[in-house]
Simulated assay, not measured.
Amino acid sequence: MFAAIASGNPLQLSAEVPNSNSLQHTIVLSSTKPKSYSHISVFILPNVTFPPEFAGTVYFKLSPAEEFKFFGYLSAEKPSAIFKVRLPNLNVSAPGEPGDGLGEIDMEDEIPGEEPTPGNVSEIIIGISIESKDQAFAKVQELKLQQAAPNSSNSLVVARTNSSAIANPGQLARMYPVVTQQLAARIVKHAHNYLTGFLDSQGNVPIKCFDNWWNKFKTRLQMDAQFLNEVTEE
């Protein structure tokens, strides 16, 4: 359904992720030896009829152990996107040694006459999730707000997750207001779906049922938080 190509490298087709409700497609741009990537194009294949009410949100990461980071989307009206890759450290790591990771990726159009920044990327993993346009555009809006924040670079950066960056729910809500709202709505909907099965004739639910839901919810959240993607907010 999708494909990607890094400048000067072969075209790579997407692979479907079985039994997935989050990232349904992945593309791995890799090589037997490190290469310098300056631009990456991601696009919907020409023979694919993409549903107009959905969008394919695009994510990047450097290894299977890292977290995907959102960078943009594809749709029937926007079947392709070009991501400009820059690396802050131009030293090439020796084989087997960890590199400094992917530096900057932005979605701006290429500036005429600008030379691509050389660097070394041995593997980039692209994840694509098919979501409603409302969800995709909410993520785009949140990304724009992050970029517009004080001390924020105009470019997007793929970096290792800093676990100390968000220390409490208030910081989460301030940094990611849209995602926090979506998370709260899905938790409430999950509780509602569970508790409606225990309504009595007066429309009340025993508090014990709520306690049971909460304990089960926490256990499932620890095992696989992706189940929240299956909960609709409406």
Score class of each variant (00 low, 15 high):
residue 1 M to W: 09
residue 2 F to N: 11
residue 4 A to N: 14
residue 5 I to R: 15
residue 6 A to I: 00
residue 11 L to E: 07
residue 17 V to L: 09
residue 17 V to P: 06
residue 18 P to W: 08
residue 18 P to L: 04
residue 20 S to D: 05
residue 20 S to Y: 03
residue 20 S to H: 02
residue 20 S to M: 06
residue 22 S to D: 06
residue 24 Q to V: 03
residue 24 Q to R: 14
residue 26 T to V: 07
residue 26 T to Q: 12
residue 32 T to A: 15
residue 35 K to L: 13
residue 37 Y to D: 01
residue 41 S to D: 13
residue 46 P to I: 00
residue 49 T to G: 05
residue 50 F to E: 01
residue 50 F to S: 05
residue 51 P to Q: 14
residue 52 P to A: 13
residue 52 P to C: 07
residue 53 E to V: 06
residue 54 F to H: 08
residue 55 A to D: 12
residue 56 G to R: 09
residue 58 V to Y: 01
residue 60 F to K: 06
residue 61 K to H: 08
residue 63 S to A: 14
residue 67 E to W: 10
residue 68 F to G: 05
residue 69 K to S: 11
residue 72 G to R: 02
residue 73 Y to T: 03
residue 73 Y to M: 11
residue 75 S to K: 06
residue 76 A to Y: 04
residue 77 E to N: 10
residue 79 P to L: 04
residue 81 A to T: 03
residue 81 A to H: 07
residue 83 F to C: 01
residue 83 F to N: 02
residue 86 R to V: 03
residue 91 N to M: 10
residue 92 V to F: 15
residue 95 P to I: 05
residue 97 E to Q: 14
residue 97 E to L: 12
residue 101 G to P: 13
residue 102 L to G: 04
residue 104 E to C: 13
residue 109 D to Q: 07
residue 111 I to V: 13
residue 114 E to C: 02
residue 119 G to P: 08
residue 123 E to F: 02
residue 126 I to T: 08
residue 126 I to F: 08
residue 129 S to L: 02
residue 131 E to C: 00
residue 132 S to E: 09
residue 135 Q to I: 03
residue 135 Q to E: 01
residue 139 K to Y: 01
residue 143 L to G: 11
residue 143 L to W: 11
residue 144 K to R: 15
residue 144 K to F: 15
residue 147 Q to F: 14
residue 147 Q to V: 15
residue 150 P to E: 11
residue 150 P to H: 11
residue 154 N to Y: 11
residue 155 S to L: 13
residue 157 V to G: 00
residue 157 V to E: 13
residue 164 S to L: 14
residue 166 I to G: 10
residue 171 Q to W: 08
residue 172 L to V: 00
residue 172 L to M: 10
residue 178 V to I: 15
residue 178 V to M: 04
residue 180 T to H: 10
residue 182 Q to D: 15
residue 184 A to H: 12
residue 186 R to Q: 14
residue 186 R to I: 10
residue 188 V to N: 08
residue 189 K to T: 12
residue 190 H to N: 13
residue 192 H to S: 12
residue 194 Y to S: 12
residue 197 G to L: 11
residue 198 F to I: 01
residue 199 L to R: 13
residue 200 D to K: 06
residue 201 S to P: 00
residue 203 G to R: 12
residue 205 V to L: 02
residue 205 V to F: 06
residue 211 D to F: 08
residue 217 F to Y: 02
residue 220 R to S: 10
residue 221 L to W: 09
residue 221 L to A: 10
residue 222 Q to K: 07
residue 222 Q to V: 10
residue 223 M to L: 11
residue 226 Q to C: 01
residue 226 Q to H: 09
residue 227 F to H: 00
residue 228 L to I: 08
residue 228 L to A: 08
residue 230 E to A: 14
residue 230 E to R: 11
residue 231 V to C: 04
residue 232 T to A: 07
residue 234 E to N: 09
residue 234 E to M: 00
residue 234 E to G: 03
